[in-house]
């Protein structure tokens, strides 16, 4: 089976957006990186919106997406992930509106105060930012590969935090006004990338490392984990490396999802036997 790109992009963009949302929540809860929050909030909202577009493209029809939410009350993870995406998008948009309003009341050299509304939305953003990749992992985990039920949500969570964290640091780096925050968030993003590496290792270990070599060793290990780890470790000295780290984690995210799709497409033993032994039919 060839890669299902719209489906893959939906999962990737939503996890990217939710990871960014989680870092937005961290900045609000810890009252740090004030000046980069607006851009981070816009980035999170855009990524979640693009993820939604990819979902509609993958299903080919908005009505199909609406139908897919029917299973939410039955606890269907695909349905819950869509509901979670919509709610997260609302949170990101609401926070963007709050911070724009706060900005309009603040003086030019003063940090905008988002108040109680900002704090509450920040906490919700943090919770959704962590919960949504877990839901997405549960939705993408192939039913016939039982260990993916817990390993996929971990891998997706690690990847979401790594992508979101490195993007947040990139935005802070572009702002150039928060040098102290840059060091602090670089360290946080480094922890996120390390977490991603550990969760990817657990995932690969369970699969017995039986993956397409180029996708796994090249895409996931080298580009997705090793390069971002090195870049984030060196980022306090060479700032531009955070952009390389962001691109690396995104490529790692694409590759881990390709491997997930390959696992899902893998025929169960029974089908393989049937395919090999199917009696030549006289009809159709």
């Amino acid at each position: 089976m060839s890669a299902q790109w719209p489906q893959l992009l939906y999962s990737l963009l939503v996890c990217f957006g939710s990871g960014t949302l989680a870092f937005l929540g961290i900045s609000e809860v810890t009252a740090s990186a004030h000046r980069s929050r607006k851009a981070v909030a816009i980035a999170a909202a855009l990524l979640l919106l693009l993820g939604g577009v990819a979902l509609v493209v993958s299903r080919g029809d908005i009505n199909a997406v609406i139908s897919m939410m029917n299973g939410a009350t039955r606890g269907n993870f695909k349905s819950l992930a869509i509901v979670g995406t919509i709610l997260s998008l609302f949170v990101a948009i609401a926070y963007t509106i709050v911070i724009f309003r706060a900005d309009s009341y603040a003086d030019e050299d003063e940090d905008a105060d988002t108040g109680t509304a900002g704090k509450i939305l920040g906490i919700i953003a943090l919770i959704f930012g962590i919960a949504l990749p877990v839901l997405m992992g549960l939705a993408d985990a192939p039913v016939r590969v039982p260990w993916t039920k817990w390993a996929a949500p971990l891998a997706y969570l690690g990847n979401a935090l790594a992508m979101g964290g490195t993007l947040a640091v990139s935005i802070i780096a572009l702002g150039k006004s928060e040098i102290r925050e840059f060091s602090r968030y670089s360290l946080l993003a480094l922890v996120a990338v390390a977490l991603q590496t550990a969760f990817f290792a657990i995932f690969a270990g369970n699969a017995g490392f039986a993956f397409d070599a180029l996708t796994f060793w090249g895409g996931v290990v080298v580009i997705g984990c090793v390069i971002p780890l090195v870049c984030m470790a060196m980022a306090p000295k060479i700032r531009t490396l955070v952009f390389v780290a962001t691109i690396g984690t995104v490529i790692g995210g694409i590759c881990i999802r390709l491997l997930m799709q390959a696992l899902a497409a893998g025929n169960p033993g029974l089908n393989l036997i049937f395919a090999a032994t199917q009696h030549a039919s006289l009809v159709g």
Binding site: T277, Q278, S281, G284
Partner: peptide, 20 residues
């Protein structure tokens, strides 16, 4: 297999039942 395809108008190349 033939009866199933005939009764349910199953498209070419698709089988609702098979004999292995």
């Amino acid at each position: 297999v033939a009866a199933c395809k005939h009764e349910n108008n199953v498209s070419l190349g698709i089988y609702w039942n098979r004999v292995n």
